[in-house]
């Protein structure tokens, strides 16, 4: 299974068929959301996945700039009929997704095993 380029905010990423499975790490705000954007959109543009699974277990906090990166990634994938699946959400992140009314736009599941089936 090929490993993909990573950075501090996306410490692990791999390609499984046409699915990218990546972990995201840290508190994400306007300061470091550009690094998240670079990693995610870079992977989308390079590998054209049908599905991206983002494990947010190590993300205790994100703000609207991080949400905007997730939405931009989703929009890119939707153009080719793909989807973004978010797993292992911490309460604070889940709460912000609900306020943003994005909890029904992204696929939210408990863990990576469930995400692979989604």
């Amino acid at each position: 299974m090929p490993e993909l380029p990573t950075n501090q905010i996306v410490p692990t990423a791999r390609l499984d068929g046409d699915t990218i499975i990546a972990a995201v790490r840290g508190e994400i705000d306007l300061h470091n959301s550009p690094a998240l954007r670079t990693a995610l959109l870079g992977a989308v543009n390079k590998y054209h996945p049908k599905k991206i699974i983002l494990n947010l277990d190590l993300v205790p906090y994100m703000d609207s700039s991080a949400i905007a990166v997730l939405v931009e990634t989703l929009q890119k994938l939707r153009k080719i009929g793909g989807k973004v699946v978010l797993t292992n959400l911490q309460p604070r992140v889940k709460g912000l997704l609900e306020i943003a009314r994005l909890n029904t736009v992204f696929v939210l599941v408990a863990d990576e095993a469930e995400a692979m089936k989604a």
Partner: peptide, 17 residues
């Protein structure tokens, strides 16, 4: 109107909520 798939506006929504 707030569109969750368009950037912008979420910060102010958080403040007001």
């Amino acid at each position: 109107p707030y569109d969750p798939l368009r950037p912008g506006g979420l910060g102010l929504i958080c403040l007001l909520k």
